[in-house]
């Protein structure tokens, strides 16, 4: 068991990062820390993707010195997926930050539980 984990340490680290991020996103009450958790979670996935695409002893997939043999390079698809994932993650973070600012302006706190209690006392207009 330990042997397997050590030989696949990148994947193990990725899954641990994912777990840390996921639990922070789920259980933390502070909105900013939730967001940090989300970013850690995404980083875990990116690490998994990048480590999967890497083949020991090969180069980055940029044609150099006219070498076109695919066996000389690592798999470029996971890198492309990581890029897409980063774009998605950035835009989601931006939207969430905008929402957080709006909630903070209204309730003057970042604690989600407190906001929930405060919003219960508001007048229900429909």
């Amino acid at each position: 068991m330990i042997q397997h984990l050590l030989s696949n340490y990148e994947e193990a680290a990725a899954v641990i990062l994912f777990g840390i991020g996921f639990t922070t996103l789920l259980f933390h009450r502070n909105l900013i820390k939730k967001l940090i958790g989300m970013n850690i979670m995404d980083t875990g996935v990116f690490l998994l993707l990048a480590s999967m695409g890497y083949i020991r002893g090969r180069k980055a997939p940029i044609v150099e010195n006219g070498v076109t043999d695919p066996a000389a390079y690592i798999n470029p698809v996971p890198a492309g997926l990581v890029l897409t994932g980063i774009v998605v993650s950035v835009s989601v973070t931006a939207v969430m930050l905008a929402l957080t600012v709006r909630l903070y302006k209204r309730y003057h706190t970042l604690d989600l539980d407190e906001i929930y209690v405060l919003s219960k006392h508001e007048k229900e207009d429909r």
């Binding site: 994912f18 991020g21 996921f22 996103l25 979670m41 989601v92 929402l99 709006r102 989600l112 229900e124």
Partner: peptide, 22 residues
């Protein structure tokens, strides 16, 4: 206020969902 709060909670759950799906 209620829709913003609902949206934040919806987003957080959805982000967990998309993270797991990814």
């Amino acid at each position: 206020g209620r829709t913003t709060l609902a949206a934040v909670r919806y987003m957080i759950l959805n982000l967990m969902g998309s993270g797991l799906f990814l």
